[in-house]
Design a protein around this nucleic acid. Structure first.
Lengths: 104, 104
DNA sequence: TAATCATATAACCAATTAGCTAATAGGTGA
DNA sequence: TCACCTATTAGCTAATTGGTTATATGATTA
């Protein structure tokens, strides 16, 4: 149930995009994420809650810890949907393919 | 020379994403764009300059008019680049392909 | 040159954002 | 229960954003 509005708002912050990139390597507890960033732990917590509201990450309490992980499908879906809406189809898809080349 | 930072900042505004979608149908003069949106002409002008700074649109003066058009390649490139950086590759690309299906 | 049309810039305002520290809540284990 | 650790929420501030109206710039035409 994540609106494109929330996703793009979430992605507008460089810090949040870096958190996502960091999470792409695998799930982590909130504190472990905070340690990597040069800001207070509450600040990171707020960023995580914005990412969660956009459904870009999931969250699961495990004992004292709260683990976060990426929702890659949702991110890909929203961005691809936007590209489809906004790009003259042929050119847009070519650009994606160019970036894909060789992967997978 | 458009940084991802500027692109994501530009895309953070719903109004700007709507302007892009509108421009995807073809180039238009600033005034023609402004008429479609329920806000003042200066406000739209400012949005256009932010889109231009992110290199998401081009701008060309023609007589009294200033025409704007999309830079679809740059948009696609930045978003695809980000997906590559942030998504566990296999899943991310599958999501893009799902959205592409049938197009082109 | 003066009048007019199309855009952009300036100056301002209200609302939002991103950070901080301090306080609170949730969970573990002596 | 108490002490301790982890994480979130509250309350604050400074900076940024997105809009406004008024003014300035640039191009055309009489």
């Amino acid at each position: 149930m994540s609106s494109p509005d929330k996703v793009f708002e979430a992605l507008a912050s460089t810090t949040r995009r870096r958190i996502l990139a960091y999470l792409s390597e695998g799930p982590l507890a909130a504190g472990a994420i905070a340690k990597r960033f040069d800001m207070s732990q509450p600040a990171v917590s707020k960023h995580l809650s914005i990412l969660e509201a956009a459904d870009l990450v999931w969250k699961r309490r495990e004992g004292q810890f709260v683990n976060y992980g990426m929702n890659a499908d949702n991110l890909g879906g929203v961005l691809a949907g936007f590209l489809q809406e906004v790009c003259p189809p042929s050119r847009a898809l070519k650009a994606e393919r160019r970036a894909e080349k060789g992967e997978d």
